[in-house]
Write a protein that binds this DNA or RNA. Structure first.
Lengths: 262, 262
DNA sequence: TTCTATCGGTTTATTATTTGAAATAGTGTT
DNA sequence: AACACTATTTCAAATAATAAACCGATAGAA
């Protein structure tokens, strides 16, 4: 750990519940010399990563973090980052992977990749609008969102796509409960015949599910080994997507995953 | 300038038009040794301010900037609210509007919007660091801040950007005095040719100017009607921004505005 | 008031770390 | 094979960190 890392690590002491930190407190937190801490702070202020309250003389996160975040988003929006995650997910599982973003009461595809490993694979339209009640991604969202969302979906009289679709209220509630319990949204031919999907959501800074990453494969290829691998990779992808967004994963979901043995 | 400032200044090379930068390019840009540059970069990557593309090995702004921005916004919400104000301002004036925050002796862009009404419009880089002496926003700040700020700017030998830049002390003092008198910072091609800007500051709870809202338009489109409209809308936007921040507008500025007939 | 303690900020000499330049390896391109 | 680039090493020279002391302001207690 060099000087830069030491100085930057000061920034990690800020959180939603810690907006301002004074010099003495920083000296305490970092364990370094007061003069050094002070020099770190003034350099961070000079760059704008921190700013100093003129009256309390305490330090808080500065305008530069906003400026940099603006640049990153305008140049490297969420989509590109998620695409990379999806590519990796598809590569690791040798199956079709996709990411979607919440859009009203549906999900819209954000990125996808079909693995070239298998000729028989699930194909996805980039422009597809995905219903919440009939897909793995939808169940993952419903299981980790406010209950009001589920009630809205039920009120909208979910469409039946296949004989396996959870089109009636009881079946849907049951599927959502199962997803909440396991930490994975799973759809066995609920949207299209012969397609088995597994999904996990990713989250924004309020631990609110904003989208999903998912893997879809032909039912003929489903096996305990494959689902185990897919689930493991989905957790990685879900974490990465959440991190990219600067979000946090709710503790409930982490618990569900560890209940499921991950 | 210490190590930290040197390392952080690498981040300033990113902009909307520069998403990824490689090691050799950074060495060029920073003028430092290759090994040092490399050490800087790896430390910035470790913290997450940068991330490295696994294939091109180039560096781009990392997830930490989003995380930090989220923390700052959740604890000190400003950007989202100001963005809405800027959108409205741009909509109402059919011109490019932007907001900036004080950062040391410069301003850093917080939000912007270009009106789609005109094909010929002023484009703004989100990453831009704005000098105080040459821009409408800067003059608005200088006119409503402690005189010490102006003295510091003068001591810093203001750079000349165009033939219109108030680069000498007398011209700058005059421009600031005019801004204080009228209540508006105005820059006629002081920073960029063909760009006319008008700005008003917004304030914190100590009636201290912390940022600006501004409108920029091509000089060819400037007219009494437009400047009148822009000024009216700027006052609205400045009040709204100040209110969002929980600040108060100094009586002096209110008087200047009413002197100007608003 | 005066004494004391705390906090932000600054200085100093000594000690420890970082830097720069050059040399070297690996990698992918032309 | 030559080239351009990232990555890593070496070590004398340059720079930063440390600890301790000190300043000035502020706040509370005697």
């Amino acid at each position: 750990m060099g000087t830069i890392s030491n100085a930057l690590s000061l920034l990690n002491h800020y959180s939603e519940t810690r907006a301002e930190i004074g010099l003495a407190e920083f000296k305490q937190l970092s364990g370094r010399d007061k003069a050094t801490t002070y020099r770190y702070l003034t350099e961070l202020v000079d760059f704008g990563l921190l700013e100093q309250d003129p009256v309390s003389r305490h330090y808080r996160l500065g305008p530069a973090v906003l400026r940099l975040a603006n640049v990153r988003e305008s140049v490297f929006p969420l989509r590109n980052a998620i695409q990379a995650i999806i590519d990796r997910l598809s590569e690791a599982t040798s199956e079709t992977a996709h990411a979607s973003l919440m859009q009203g009461l549906t999900l819209s595809t954000l990125a996808k990749r079909e693995s070239p490993k298998h000729a028989a694979r699930v194909s996805f339209s980039q422009s597809q609008i995905i219903p919440l009640h009939a897909t793995a991604s939808g169940l993952a969202i419903l299981a980790t969102s406010d209950d009001k969302l589920l009630e809205q979906v039920i009120k909208g009289t979910p469409e039946r796509y296949t004989v396996f679709t959870h089109a009636d209220e009881a079946a849907l509630r049951d599927a959502v409960a199962k997803a909440a319990q396991s930490g994975f949204g799973i759809s066995d031919q609920g949207y299209e015949e012969e397609v088995y999907g597994i999904a996990v959501p990713f989250f924004d800074e309020h631990a609110c599910a904003i989208g999903t990453v998912a893997v879809a494969c032909p039912t003929s290829r489903v096996s305990p080994e494959l689902t185990e691998l897919v689930k493991r990779e989905l957790i990685v992808a879900g974490r990465a997507s959440t991190k990219t967004r600067g979000g946090t994963i709710p503790a409930k979901l982490e618990e569900a995953w560890s209940r499921s043995g991950f």
